[in-house]
Amino acid sequence: MNVRSIFPFLLAGWATAALPQGYAGLGTEAEGFAVPELGRKLSFPQDHGAHPDFRIEWWYLTANLTDASGRDYGIQWTLFRSALAPGEAEGWQSPQIWMAHAAVTAPDQHLFAERIARGGVGQAGVSADPFDAWIGDWQMRSTGEALEKMEIAASGQEFSYDLRLTAEGPLVLHGEEGYSVKSDSGQASYYYSQPFYQVSGTLDLPGGPVDVTGHGWLDREWSSQPLAEDQSGWDWFSLSFDSGEKLMGFVLRGDSGDFTSGTWITAEGVAEPLPPGAFRAEAGAESDVQGRKIPTSWKATLPDKGVSVEVQALNPQSWMGTSFSYWEGPVTVTGSHSGKGYLEMTGYD
């Protein structure tokens, strides 16, 4: 299957043309863009900020939350940066395009919203120190050192949320010191996470405000060509086990076979990169989601760590019907380990 056939981008105009660089552009040549280099050390706080020389970048927060009655929720706050050309320029001449997705998911409800903005004129952007990522009135802002304490806010037609995050563990660098390989032919990205957020705050839902607490996971990734030509999409898991251990694993689906990788994170925050093939995910029951068949139940295994778990969507209808669409939602984990997490599936059509 060809990547471009999956995301016909002209339907909604330039926004989609400019952004699904997200996926459609992921497999294309880097054409003047910077490419990740093995051995370059990430340096903070600078690398919390934007890297305009790279084609694509994101600040991706998900959280599993619970209200006082024990009802489960998931929230997503994502800011994407997509460059039409490398580098930054003043005002409207900036080639940077920003897009954000926000969602609140409950077992019977999935609300989402999207924002798109031009770079260079101040309506969206990211500053590294103090950390501030914003698009319109959506914001992810540091209230302490670097990413230690944060506030996030977003609002759509039917929902809004206001949450405070406190990191209870260290940053985790994926792959080799943050250099994360994405295919056998060497495509890679810079990738680090803060998976140890304690989260509390309020969700404003159509039924009224709900106070929630839970755990959040921030992913930071940038690259210029993270997918190989033949790769058509991915299934990405971030699982937090009750034991305090965490597993990030992904499957990149390609014509010449799947490429899997991931990171095992100990309760103390020590990252152990997983060699390709160590992590396995097997699609289980499919759900009918917006006219598509999508696996919303998975069997994930990591034999080295004795992990063999069932991953089940909290709400199988967690479809992000945004400019480019994908499935993203909270999951519950049972089996050898129990816990919660988030699942993202792209490239299903």
């Binding site: 002209l10 105009g13 330039w14 926004a15 043309a17 039409l84 798109i116 903005a117």
Partner: peptide, 23 residues
Amino acid sequence: DLLSHPLVPALAEAAEQDSAPAL
């Protein structure tokens, strides 16, 4: 702003018929 103006769908359609490069 070609990302947000109400005219964009009409223009995008025209650009597509013109087979103009997307960006």
